[in-house]
Each structure stands twice: as C-alpha cells, then as structure tokens.
Simulated scan of single mutants.
Amino acid sequence: MDAETIRELIEKGLPDAQVEVQGDDGVHFEATVVAEAFRGKLPLARHRMVYATLGDLMGGAIHALALKTVTPDGK
C-alpha cells in the first residue's frame, strides 16, 4: 500500500475532499482530510466517513491511519 493510493481512495469516496497522505513504511499512514461533508459532524463520525472509503484495507493492508479531519474553514 502507498500514500497515493490511499489519497485516491479517500477522494473517490469523498469527492469534495482535499486529501494529503503521508507514510513511508507501507502500513502506517497519516492523513489530513478537508471536506465540507464534515460540517456538523463529531470527530468520530468524520473518521468513520474516511474509514468507509477504505473498506477492508483498514486493519489489513493499512495497519494504522492517523487522521486529521476538518471542514474547509478549519473547524
């Protein structure tokens, strides 16, 4: 697994999102996801939205994904 593939999957699942993903070891990644779809949602709900875009890869090919999820205005 690589950061670019994860970015593409998240953007496909959350089309309005701006996504940055980092991770060099192939199993541990960090992502910042900025999406209007997060507005009014608690952090756990936002994370679940991102995890849903990755499906079965979470816990498998992606061992760990640290997330920062914000709306376009930084909230």
Rank of each mutant, 00 (worst) to 15 (best):
E11Q: 12
Q18R: 15
G55R: 02
H63L: 10
V70G: 08
K68W: 01
L65E: 06
G59M: 04
G13W: 07
T5S: 14
A64W: 12
Y51C: 08
T5W: 14
A66Q: 11
A52R: 15
T5N: 13
I10W: 08
L57F: 09
V70E: 12
I62T: 05
L65S: 04
V70Q: 12
E11S: 10
K75V: 09
P72T: 08
L9C: 08
R39F: 12
I62V: 01
H63E: 13
F29G: 03
G40T: 01
D56A: 07
Q22A: 15
V19R: 09
G60C: 09
E4C: 06
Q22E: 15
V50C: 06
F29Y: 10
T71H: 12
D24W: 15
G26K: 04
E11I: 07
P15C: 08
G60R: 04
M49Q: 03
L54T: 00
D56E: 14
Q22N: 14
G55A: 02
P43N: 05
M49R: 06
V19H: 07
L14F: 01
A45H: 09
A61E: 15
R46Q: 10
G26D: 09
V21G: 00
F38Q: 08
L54G: 00
F29H: 07
D73Q: 14
E4P: 13
K75M: 13
E36M: 15
A52L: 12
T71M: 09
L54N: 02
K75A: 13
H28I: 01
P43R: 08
V33M: 05
V27H: 15
L9N: 11
E20C: 11
K41C: 06
Q22L: 15
V33T: 03
R39M: 15
K41D: 10
L65T: 11
K12Q: 12
T53M: 04
G59C: 09
I10H: 02
V33F: 05
L54D: 07
I6R: 11
I10D: 07
Q18G: 13
T69L: 00
K75Q: 14
A66D: 04
A3C: 05
M49H: 11
V33K: 02
P72W: 09
Q18C: 13
E30S: 13
V27G: 06
P72E: 00
I6N: 07
G60T: 06
L65R: 10
V27T: 13
I10R: 00
G59I: 01
E20H: 08
D73A: 08
V34S: 01
G74N: 01
K41P: 04
I62W: 02
G60D: 09
A45S: 07
Q18D: 13
H47R: 13
E11D: 00
G40N: 07
V21Y: 06
R7S: 04
H47Y: 03
V34C: 02
D16G: 10
V19Y: 06
D24I: 14
E4A: 15
K41E: 11
L54M: 06
V50A: 12
H28M: 08
L44I: 12
I10E: 07
L14K: 12
A35F: 11
D25S: 03
Y51T: 03
V33S: 05
F38L: 09
R48N: 00
L42A: 15
R7F: 05
K12Y: 11
Q18K: 15
D2L: 12
D56I: 03
E8H: 14
L14E: 06
G74E: 03
